[in-house]
Design a binder for these strands. Structure first.
Lengths: 223, 223
DNA sequence: TTTCGACTACCGGGAAACCGGTAGAGACCG
DNA sequence: CGGTCTCTACCGGTTTCCCGGTAGTCGAAA
């Protein structure tokens, strides 16, 4: 029985290329692709899945929320985080969400193959620079999870939408809550993170990988 | 004689995956990989190259400058731009630099194969959304090269400070101009770039490298 | 010389952000 | 059970953003 893999990344080109890379490995079978966290959940609900290669920065539901919700209902699925950055908070959040692997896109393709094999065997794989990041976090505070200000899932969702340029009212519509509630989350975010305006929140969201660097304003016609 | 291809992207994972994708096409041979524009130039100087798949956003020399300098000395090499975004300015700058193809990472992997075949035959290939972008630019002004929303030095300064989270008044103090003047620059920026709030301006500044992704707020997280 | 772009500066108004408070429901824990 | 946390929601008020004008100066280009 080959390993049933789902690739989640907002870039179709990257998914297709990864699929070609993994196709060369015997025992690997990419059974589906997803462009957002929601699609991952839908796929897992519809067909058996063994492992997900999950990009963190995706429009809509990001990889961390997707991991948390996926593992809540499908705890047997292995999740390997795949990101352009190796930010500490980012790694910690993902591991805390239950992921069992983390690789950056700066790593070699072989790293991913190695990670998949490792996770398939039930163990955890971190690429070298990520391992160093986690180690430094442990050294700094003695505990992984006592780290910096942890955001709730709701706060992460709100932060992502703020960084995408939505107003509180638009965010409220999107999340089906009142704009005033969004404002509360916004204030709590700023207090927790010691940030004081949308620009800083946006930068934070991008560095943490909560928000993709860009996703809406492309095809459009400026001027 | 197979087509000698160079892959230029700062993510090793993406290069390796693309290499696997292209390896399935007969007549394609990836002869080298580069992580920056400088490496592309070095490779082209050292060995024969037919075609370069060039990512736009790379550390050090970016894809646009690399294309310009590469074609200055090796005009026979075909360059296909490969970017996460279909920003009008990127596309136009790259085409003006002499590239003969442009594809976004949101496109299917097949698009790249198709583009390579087209460029090999000496023609130009643009993926659909990019073509639409260029068409709209042409419709707007009848000229391709007058399209790029070029920012003035002052606008760049203001944009950077907005992205750092300063208010108009703080920016005015920093630049020794009135807050009302900063507002004018802010409005002109938003009009030129078709952006409508601080979050989008911040994201733009980061993707353009006008504002660094991180500075200060990561290492020593508060609380 | 006239025209144009860049930079400067102000007015006015509506929308949104920002900052403080209160408060109830539900979950979880010692 | 009491305490704590999260999420929900609203109140008020100030600041800033966002959008629309107008307009003067300066230097460069036509």
């Amino acid at each position: 029985m080959s390993l049933r893999i789902v690739l989640a990344d907002d870039h179709q080109m990257f998914r297709h290329a990864l699929r070609a890379l993994l196709a060369r490995e015997p025992g690997f079978e990419v059974v589906a692709e997803a462009a957002s966290g929601d699609e991952v959940l839908a796929i897992a609900a519809a067909q058996p899945v063994d492992l997900v290669c999950m990009d963190i920065a995706m429009p809509g539901m990001n990889g961390i929320d997707a991991t948390r919700r996926l593992l809540a209902t499908h705890p047997h699925i292995g999740v390997i985080g795949l990101s352009a950055f190796a930010d500490r908070q980012f790694v910690i959040d993902l591991l805390e969400a239950g992921a069992r692997g983390y690789i950056t896109k700066a790593d070699a393709g072989d790293e991913l193959v190695r990670a998949i094999h490792t996770v398939r065997e039930g163990r955890t794989y971190l690429c070298p620079d990520v391992a160093a990041t986690v180690a430094s976090a442990l050294l700094d505070r003695g505990s992984l999870y006592a780290a910096a200000p942890r955001l709730t899932e709701r706060e992460r969702q709100v932060l992502q939408l703020i960084a995408e340029g939505l107003t509180s009212m638009q965010i409220g519509d999107r999340l089906h809550i009142a704009a005033s509630t969004v404002d509360v989350h916004r204030r709590n975010l700023m207090r927790k993170l010691d940030l004081h305006n949308v620009a800083e929140l946006t930068r934070y969201a991008i560095t943490q990988g909560i928000s993709p660097t860009r996703q809406g304003l492309d095809g459009g016609l400026p001027n």
